[in-house]
Amino acid sequence: MLPIAGVAPFDDPAWFFEPWWPGTSALAYVEDFHVRLQIEHLADPMAAFPELSAMGGDFANDQLVVEGSLLVLDDEGRPDQDLLRRRLSEPGSRDGTPAFVASDLLYDLGQPLLDLTFEERRRRLAGVLTDTDSCVVSRGLRGEGITLAEAITSMGLIEISARLLSARYRPGARDESWQRVPVVEAPIVPTRPLLTLLQRLPL
């Protein structure tokens, strides 16, 4: 399933909003508690992310398909697209720390969940995945796209993902129930000086 391009952040209780993490979309297949990753062009980029090979053990159930984002974090713990690109393009690159942010659960115990609502799939996802150092369930806000948009701007992120809670999963299709929404008009590239700003956030 692919998102359509949204226009601007909005508030709607029927939608769930989460940051669009600056990484690459990925599907994680968990079988016998071993995980296989699939991203857009590479069949399995796991060779570039050996740190994630133990990720299968992070799930409470087996026979899963999890949709999420594959990120590479820099030393400050921030997602870094350059490090991700380097990992994918240069075999042997071990810069940064890879992480998987799960956002949707498509199969559970070998059973397809595609006909369930996003809300239910997400609820089940939270049930099967415990946060670890490298694998977490994405955080988000129900109904409050504008609040989330404001919050992530201060983190140097530029897009949010809006998903209709009642929508089913449509494999392969671009669907209106999923929007990739820019939060700022002029794109702000999260450059390094912003790290200092991020650290000054009221934690």
């Binding site: 992480a99 992530i152 934690l203």
Partner: peptide, 19 residues
């Protein structure tokens, strides 16, 4: 620090700050 969890904490804190 557990890194990816930190990122989620930053998100949560920054949502709290906005609110």
């Amino acid at each position: 620090p557990t890194k990816i969890a930190d990122l989620m904490s930053v998100l949560e804190a920054s949502v709290a700050a906005v609110r």
